[in-house]
C-alpha cells in the first residue's frame, strides 16, 4: 500500500512527522490568559442580567474563550523568535521545537475564523465583529506592530485583553452599554501596572529579546512613576460600578480594599528602588495585581449571580 504522494511523486521526501502532543496545542492557547478571559467575560454577561437562553450564553462564552486562545496561539506563532531568547518563554511549544510555526499558524487561524463565525451565527454579528476586532488588534496591532516599536506597547495592546467583557455583553444583549465599557476600563487601566511590575524584574530578559519595555527605554524610575500614576487612576476608577449602580455593598468593600492595597504596593514599588527589596516589592505588586482583577470581579459575580447585591445607601438610584 502506498500513499497518494508516494504514487504520484515518488521522489518527494515524506513530510516530517509532527512530534506535538495534544497538550502542546493546548499550551498554544495560553490557558492561564484564557481562564482570565472566561472569568471577566462571564462577569460581563452576568452583570447585565441578559434575557438569553443559558445554552446560547454558555456557547458564546466558550467561543470568546476560543477566540482568546486563537489570539494567544497567533501571538506565539509571530513571536517565536522573541520567545526563544527569553527565559520565561523559551520552553513554549514553538521555541522548544515541539510544534512548528506552520502548525501554530494553521491552528490559530482555524480557531480564530471558526470562533468568530460561530459567535455570529449563535449570538449576533456585533459580538462576532468585536471578537474579530479583539483578535486582530492583539495579533496585528499589538504583536506585529506595537510590541517591538514603542514602550507604550502594553498600554495600547492592553485594550485587546480588556475587551472580553464587552464582547460578552454584546453576545447576550446585542449592544454595548456603559457597564461593559466600565469593566473594559478597569482591565485596561490595570494592565500597565501589572506588566510593568514584571518588566521591572525581567528587564534584562526583555532587553535581550529587543523588546522596548518601559524600564529599558525610560528607565526603572520613570516606570515606577508611571505604575504609581496608573494605580492612582485605577483605584477610584474601580469604584465606578458603585456610582453607576451595578456594584453593591459587597463590591464597594472588596474593590475599595483591593484598590487601596494596589495603591499601597505601588507606593512601595515607587519608594523602594534598590537591590533585592526593590525586586521583591515589584513582584509583590505583580502577584497582587492578578488578585486585583479576580477579587472585585468575583464580588460582582456574587452580587449578580448569587443574590448578594445590596445597594449602597445614600445613592440617589
Amino acid at each position: 500500500m502506498s500513499t497518494i504522494a508516494q504514487r504520484f511523486a515518488p521522489d518527494l521526501a515524506p513530510p516530517r512527522a509532527s512530534t506535538a502532543e495534544v497538550g502542546d496545542f493546548f499550551a498554544l492557547l495560553k490557558p492561564r490568559v484564557m481562564s482570565l478571559v472566561i472569568f471577566t467575560a462571564l462577569v460581563g454577561m452576568v452583570v447585565v442580567h441578559p434575557d438569553v437562553h443559558p445554552v446560547i450564553a454558555a456557547a458564546s462564552l466558550l467561543l470568546i474563550a476560543v477566540g482568546a486562545g486563537a489570539s494567544g496561539c497567533l501571538n506565539m506563532w509571530w513571536e517565536a523568535d522573541i520567545d526563544a531568547v527569553m527565559t520565561r518563554t523559551r520552553t513554549r511549544p514553538i521555541p522548544a521545537g515541539r510544534v512548528t510555526r506552520e502548525e501554530a499558524l494553521a491552528f490559530g487561524v482555524s480557531l480564530a475564523v471558526g470562533s468568530v463565525l460561530m459567535l455570529g451565527l449563535f449570538a449576533n454579528w456585533l459580538a462576532a465583529g468585536l471578537l474579530a476586532f479583539t483578535i486582530l488588534f492583539y495579533v496585528v496591532i499589538y504583536s506585529m506592530g506595537l510590541k517591538r516599536l514603542t514602550a507604550q506597547n502594553i498600554v495600547i495592546g492592553g485594550a485587546a485583553g480588556a475587551l472580553p467583557p464587552v464582547v460578552a455583553e454584546a453576545a447576550v444583549t446585542g449592544q454595548v452599554s456603559l457597564v461593559g465599557l466600565v469593566l473594559f476600563g478597569i482591565i485596561f487601566l490595570w494592565t500597565p501596572p501589572h506588566f510593568w511590575a514584571l518588566a521591572l524584574v525581567k528587564s534584562e530578559d526583555y532587553a535581550r529579546a529587543g523588546i522596548p519595555m518601559l524600564p529599558n527605554v525610560s528607565g526603572p524610575d520613570e516606570t515606577r512613576r508611571q505604575i504609581l500614576l496608573y494605580s492612582l487612576i485605577l483605584a477610584p476608577f474601580g469604584l465606578l460600578p458603585v456610582a453607576l449602580g451595578f456594584g453593591g455593598l459587597v463590591y464597594l468593600a472588596v474593590a475599595g480594599l483591593a484598590g487601596a492595597a494596589m495603591l499601597a504596593l505601588s507606593v512601595k514599588v515607587y519608594r523602594v528602588r534598590d537591590g533585592q527589596p526593590a525586586a521583591r516589592a515589584a513582584m509583590e505588586l505583580f502577584g497582587f495585581s492578578i488578585l486585583y482583577v479576580f477579587l472585585p470581579f468575583s464580588a460582582l459575580l456574587a452580587e449578580h449571580a448569587f443574590g448578594f447585591f445590596r445597594p449602597v445607601p445614600g445613592l440617589p438610584w
Binding site: 512527522a17 509532527s18 512530534t19 506535538a20 496545542f25 446560547i56 456557547a59 466558550l62 449563535f122
Partner: peptide, 30 residues
C-alpha cells in the same frame, strides 16, 4: 510519534463530536 499522532487524532475527533453537540443544542435553544 505514532502514539502522539493517535492522541492528536482522538482529540480532533472529540472536538468535532463536541461541535456537533453544540450546534444541535444551540439550534434547539434558538
Amino acid at each position: 510519534e505514532l502514539k502522539r499522532r493517535r492522541a492528536r487524532s482522538i482529540a480532533i475527533g472529540l472536538a468535532l463530536g463536541f461541535l456537533v453537540l453544540m450546534f444541535y443544542a444551540v439550534t434547539i435553544a434558538k
